[in-house]
Amino acid sequence: MSLTDKAIVQIRELIGTGALPPGSKLPPEPELAAQLGLSRNLAREAVKALSVARILEVRRGDGTYVTSLAPSLLFEGLGGAVELLQSDPGALLDLMEVRRLLEPAATALAATRISEDQLAEIGHHLDAMREARDDVERLNAHDAAFHRAVVRATGNESLLTLLEGVSGRTLRARIWRGLVDDQAAQRTLSEHEAIFTALANRDAALGQAAALLHVSNTERWLRQHLRTAEAATPSTDGPGLLARPDPA
């Protein structure tokens, strides 16, 4: 462990123990360094690293503060990391496995907690998906909103942030493009309808089963297309799940 890493751990311990609660202001740099037995340079480097991690916020002319430490803030970098991993087929499949483990459980939990307003929001996105059968961009947008609303109904912000990060906007768009090309979009829409029906009936077991079927089918489709893309020669576009960039 480097000296900077040790300094980071010391400041994190102050936050973790409540000595520096969310929203509190850190002592000035010389005072913080003396309190922790660090050089000012080490204290400065630790503060910079924790600012990048969104644990601290440096306000010019005011000082350094502990952020809200909300999951949506601390997990902010997850989505960016997922985007970077999407050129690696193995990493993509790992992410789909994570989604398969978490999303059915989240759907089951949502079925026990969902409000009428939340159910209406999910129904709105389902209707929009039906109307946008051949419009990949609209399908993708409402698909993401559908699943976001389902997980939001759990009331668990950490779960929502994790699943949003794992799903990935770019991956969703590529999958929908492939599904439309394969004329498999209707089957996937039916799977969303089954999830909605389970939520409307407040049936946790059915919701979990419907979500598991949906994610498992998507994962199976992705595995098949990754194999096809791997077999395609570099000179051909082929199915292009990984090769084709998304439109701006």
Results as ranks from 00 to 15, higher is better:
P247E: 14
L139K: 02
A145K: 08
V136Y: 01
T112P: 00
A144I: 02
L14H: 04
D94M: 10
G238I: 13
G155W: 05
N140H: 12
T161P: 03
R220M: 06
A81N: 06
E45N: 12
A110I: 05
E97F: 03
D143L: 04
R130K: 09
G79W: 00
V58M: 13
V58A: 14
D246R: 01
A33Y: 11
A153N: 08
R169I: 02
E97R: 13
T112A: 00
T64H: 09
G207K: 00
D5E: 15
L73F: 05
L212K: 13
P22T: 13
R223P: 02
A105K: 09
A145R: 10
L74V: 09
D62R: 05
D181F: 08
A229G: 15
M129Q: 01
R130N: 06
D135Y: 06
A200T: 10
L119Q: 09
Q224G: 06
S190V: 04
L126G: 02
L179F: 02
I195C: 01
R177Y: 07
Q224H: 11
L50P: 10
R187A: 14
A53N: 05
H125Y: 15
L69N: 07
L84N: 11
V166D: 01
M129D: 00
S72R: 12
R172E: 08
I55C: 01
S87G: 15
A184I: 04
A132V: 05
A106D: 01
E116L: 13
Q118D: 14
T64R: 05
A132R: 05
L163N: 02
E29H: 14
L159E: 07
E193V: 09
I175W: 10
Q183R: 15
S87R: 14
E57K: 10
L241F: 11
D143S: 11
K25Q: 14
A34I: 10
L163A: 03
I8W: 02
L126K: 06
V136C: 03
R202G: 00
E137T: 12
G77F: 15
A184L: 08
D203V: 00
V52G: 14
A185T: 09
S2F: 09
V58H: 14
R187M: 10
A120D: 15
E131Y: 04
R148I: 03
S158K: 11
L20T: 01
L160C: 10
T17L: 07
L101G: 09
G16T: 07
D237L: 12
L101Q: 15
L3P: 06
E45S: 10
V66Y: 02
H214V: 08
R133Y: 08
L95P: 04
G79P: 01
D246S: 07
P22W: 15
S68E: 14
E13H: 11
E57D: 03
Q118S: 10
E116W: 12
G80M: 07
A145V: 12
R133A: 04
D62W: 01
L160S: 04
R148C: 05
